[in-house]
């Protein structure tokens, strides 16, 4: 029928209709968008040892011109001067890329196995993947400490089965390996679910058609299944990659002193050194790094809707 649901009803905006848009819009502008402008501004201001630890912000809007004249890239220059920050960024990216790859490596076979499971079993499997997500992130990371620490359960297990001598210990805790384990563990549901969603809706007769046309199963996977699941791969990768880059809890609890991640650096600048402007500058650069992945993610979501 010719009922184009766009421009649905007459254009007589009743107040109630506009409140629906206006209330969440204003909330997000105020509490999500505006803070980014402030963070940008503070990253350009001087450190003052007062409380709050930065020179005051709003001296009325008349001060805007004043502000422009005092633009100060000192914090950013400092970031480029000190190799610690550059190494932090690069290390974060490295850890995020490797973890995302590991997540794909583990998540894809799981999602595929779920999608190929009997229909009656699938809701249970999805439930099993989601359930850990409902339990606290912090608790799940914490659980690994007891396992990975030198006198922890992994050492005990390996000693018991004889892979380690009675006085040897597993030296994983407080290393990058522990960070990878923690990240893969925490983010696995976020990778599996989009992949599963993409694989599950795939028409099974496509593979049958490929087989029928003489394509063996493994080749059919690479020629048919994998290309069609690419949207899921992109979605899952972005959902994991972006927050991993800024991850704080996992490197802090499982990583060592030499595990550099930018989230941890930011936390230290803020809570340890109380240098708010520098922390802001760190955040701004992190955000700039993530603009492209976030744009890809947004684009992906738009296609879904």
């Amino acid at each position: 029928m010719a009922t184009v649901s766009e421009t649905h009803t007459a254009k007589k905006p009743s107040p109630a209709r506009w409140l629906v848009v206006a209330v969440p819009y204003v909330w997000l502008l105020l509490f999500f968008a505006a803070p980014f402008l402030i963070i940008l501004k503070i990253s350009l201001s001087d450190t003052a040892i007062a409380m709050p630890p930065y020179t005051p912000l709003f001296q009325g809007f008349g001060a805007l011109g004043d502000f422009a004249s005092k633009l100060d890239f000192e914090n950013y220059l400092f970031l480029t001067d000190d190799p610690l920050y550059i190494r932090s960024y690069l290390s974060s990216l490295r850890i995020a890329v490797i973890s995302t790859f590991l997540l794909l490596l583990i998540g894809y076979p799981m999602a595929l196995a779920m999608a190929r499971a009997p229909t009656s079993l699938r809701p249970t499997l999805v439930m099993l993947v989601i359930l850990p997500f409902w339990t606290s992130f912090l608790i799940r990371v914490y659980a690994w400490i007891g396992i990975l620490k030198p006198d922890g359960l992994l050492t005990l297990l390996l000693q018991t089965i004889g892979l380690l001598g009675p006085n040897e210990q597993v030296q994983i805790f407080r290393t990058d390996i522990a960070v990878f384990i923690g990240i893969v563990y925490s983010y696995l549901p976020f990778m599996v679910l989009p992949l599963y969603a993409a694989l599950e809706k795939m028409d099974n007769t496509l593979l049958e058609a490929a087989n029928d046309l003489g394509c063996p199963p493994l080749k059919a996977f690479w020629k048919i299944t994998f290309p069609l699941s690419l949207p899921g791969v992109v979605a899952g990768s972005m959902i994991c990659f972006i927050p991993i880059t800024g991850e704080f809890v996992i490197p802090d609890l499982l990583g060592g002193a030499d595990t550099l991640m930018i989230g941890k650096t930011l936390w230290t600048e803020f809570f340890g050194n109380r240098d708010w402007p520098l922390a802001s500058a760190v955040a701004v650069i992190l955000l700039v790094m993530l603009v492209v992945p976030i744009a890809i993610f947004q684009n992906q979501q738009k296609k879904v809707v």
């Binding site: 029928m1 009922t3 649905h8 009803t9 007459a10 254009k11």
Partner: peptide, 16 residues
């Protein structure tokens, strides 16, 4: 797509 439903919906008030 001949417009018959649209015509009816205009009478009902769902479209102007």
């Amino acid at each position: 797509g001949c417009g018959k439903t649209t015509l009816m919906r205009m009478l009902a008030g769902f479209e102007e």
